[in-house]
Nucleic acid binder design. Structure first.
Lengths: 204, 204, 204, 204
DNA sequence: CATGAATGAGAGTTCATTCAT
DNA sequence: GATGAATGAACTCTCATTCAT
């Protein structure tokens, strides 16, 4: 079914990761057992061990897959000819959508993972993601300042601040639940800090 | 050991919760088993089941215990004769200390709990805590505005914003790690949003 | 079934060891799994783990049980009023019986155990048994020399030599197989080294 | 790599056996899995099954290889012009070296094998080896008696006795451990039984 | 002949939960 | 009420063995 032809089974590996992703989305991280993944994939118990050692390893690979796409999208949109304010606003609206979605997201599983697994295992995938996002946002704000759309003295600080607010929203969405209005208010707060007023109607 | 009066179970209950708290601080939430608690308490396996059904229930009771004290402290400090800015600043420095502490805190366990257990079980302890904190902070900011120390149009919005930043910092402290400087910057950011500049030296 | 009455379950422990002994006699050491013992005992999977951690531990306890009786029998027989030659001869005939038995003996399992388990685990049960046997035999030979029945310059060396021969016979019985005649010849050899001739008829 | 002629399988067979030997020396018998051998040989899992069915079969072939060389060496040394006492003494010193070596020997694996595998499988390699050794030693002792160096009535019995002592030492070396002095004493014991005194200095 | 991915039986181990005392 | 021995379901992980290529 998977062929072997020298390329090992990159295909099957990918298939397992994609299937495992669904399982993680459904059940979070910790409750997922190797057995769950085996069953979801429709492969044999031992077969899975041919590719991965444990759920932690699988999960980290899933996250890697996931993150590669993520900030590329954001990063790419910067190059388009739009004002920084437009881009940032677009980005925040995208984040809002994700925040309110709650299903079909790895978010829950990711947090679980980072609370459960030994610090050693954690690697720094999450930190790298965070730092990378900060860097991109810093660039964006810098552009906005040059273009005259943003007012900001410390771009990096501002970028980091925005990320912390987003993190706060993300975790709150998972734990205490948040409403669309709450997110909107935070987005306006952020935009206002950059000297941009946002009208009622523009927040999807 | 526990007498035979009606209050005996109350005492033992409390004893179990206090002992369990230590266990949760040590090991987080999920890794804690009924066995762990039984052993820490030095009681019998079956005995624990007379009081609690599972670790989730125990943990929720521990959180209830915990939260009763927490915002009272903050709430009380408002009544003292100090400027709102002083009080807020004090509060934020307190939060900073806790953020950087990482041990001896239930924080990790709380997050774990909210990610692992079924939504049904979660109750809304965390939400109530959050809302209560927002309310208190709103009052404080209101006071500051009246006193002329703070500049702020939407006190409730600002209060909520501050809480989201703190949440963001808290979760980041647990997952990607944060430094003292990063927290300082965020505190200055918050104070500045309220129109208060903070000098280098004042952030312990 | 086993009562608890404060004495833990010494009874059950003993029951398990005795049942396990039979299993080891049947299957040797390595092939025996915790499951085998569980089934032989008619107890639950987890139940066994309440008493023992693994087959090695169980086996060592079985050996301890076994050895306590063993050299007491020999040791006791020395005090009786019989010549040293008689006692030694009796002992050797006893050994012969055991050598030829092959079933109902732990011998095979013991060797397996000492070859398989990590040196750490081995403890020195076997060595202690060997040394203790040497000591007793040395005393016996010493008595024989005093009584004038044995001719021997180095009692300890002779004692050790006899033990090596017995070990050689034991292992050969297990591996290449030995006949009654072969054992008889060795017994005569030993007795002759001590200056005692043994007639054809006296070897059961 | 192995050509395609009929002799290819012979070569590969030999290669596997030689590689497997090293594995057995390292890990004993039972712990060795087909997987271990496959990995050590750098061949495919299925490939090994084309040549051998299981580890027992492989091990028996390894032993066959081993034994062919062994007693030839001893046997050959008899033909040289040296007294029987010299040859025997040389042989015993050689044995001593091997006894104390403990590594780089198949000894451990051999015993393990004979304790673990079904009697059916054992074949009689070990017995043949033993008998062959006895025969050679009998001849040697016979020579010694003719030459006048040895005093011995029953050469075959004596030969067998020596072998049992050696077996006892061998197994003891593996299980309880023996010192150089202990072996020396046994060697002197043997030589003395043949009427030959050995000086302190001659036992390397 | 050779390969190595895939299978699946089975061993070890842990705990939530029960229940006779 | 309290005890803790006993249960058994569930999970992890390893290999001998097969089979399509």
């Amino acid at each position: 079914m998977w062929g072997s032809m020298g390329e090992k089974s990159v295909q099957k590996r990918k298939y397992i990761l994609e299937t495992a992703r669904k399982v993680f989305v459904d059940k979070g991280f910790k409750k997922v057992t190797m057995k769950d993944i085996v069953e979801a994939c429709g492969i044999s118990r031992g077969g899975l061990y041919l590719y991965f050692d444990d759920t932690s390893q699988i999960f980290m690979e899933v996250m890697k897959m996931e993150s590669q796409e993520a900030d590329d999208v954001f990063s790419d949109s910067i190059t388009e000819d739009a004002t920084a304010a437009d881009i940032l606003f677009l980005f925040l609206r995208e984040q809002k959508k994700e925040l309110l979605r709650r299903n079909d997201t790895l978010t829950q599983a990711i947090y679980e993972f980072y609370f459960q697994s030994e610090p050693v295992k954690k690697g720094n995938v999450l930190k790298r993601q965070f730092d990378s996002a900060v860097k991109i946002m810093e660039r964006l704000i810098g552009m906005g300042v040059e273009q005259g759309g943003f007012a900001c003295e410390d771009c990096r600080g501002m970028a980091r601040h925005i990320m912390f607010v987003l993190e706060g929203l993300k975790i709150s969405a998972q734990t205490i639940g948040i409403t669309s209005e709450v997110v909107d208010r935070e987005i306006r707060f952020i935009m206002k800090s950059l000297g941009v007023e946002v009208g009622e109607e523009s927040l999807g």
